[in-house]
């Protein structure tokens, strides 16, 4: 599953973020394997997505979110 599949309030652990299309800037903000990502808010039409990635609060577009692989964090 990917970040784009999360529902508001849910979180997951990043398993892969190595797609070439993911900007380096996002990686530098902490979007790296092993880190936690939480979906805080979505704009209308589910785009963009407002995330908390490892403590960094960022918004990214749906298309990029769909490239970040995660696995659901167990509560």
């Amino acid at each position: 599953m990917t970040v784009a599949d999360l529902k508001k309030g849910e979180s997951g652990i990043i398993t892969d973020s190595s797609s070439d299309e993911i900007p380096l800037k996002l990686l530098e903000m902490g979007c790296l394997p092993g880190n936690e990502v939480e979906l805080i808010q979505t704009a209308p039409f589910n785009d963009p997505l407002y995330l908390n990635i490892n403590g960094s609060h960022v918004a990214i577009r749906h298309r990029i979110a769909a490239l970040i692989q995660i696995e659901k964090a167990d509560e």
Binding site: E21, P23, S56, H57, V58, A59, I60, R61, R63, I64
Partner: peptide, 11 residues
């Protein structure tokens, strides 16, 4: 151009 968009949401 490849479109990407990252914006930090500061406190």
């Amino acid at each position: 151009r490849k479109s990407y968009f990252v914006i930090e949401m500061p406190n």
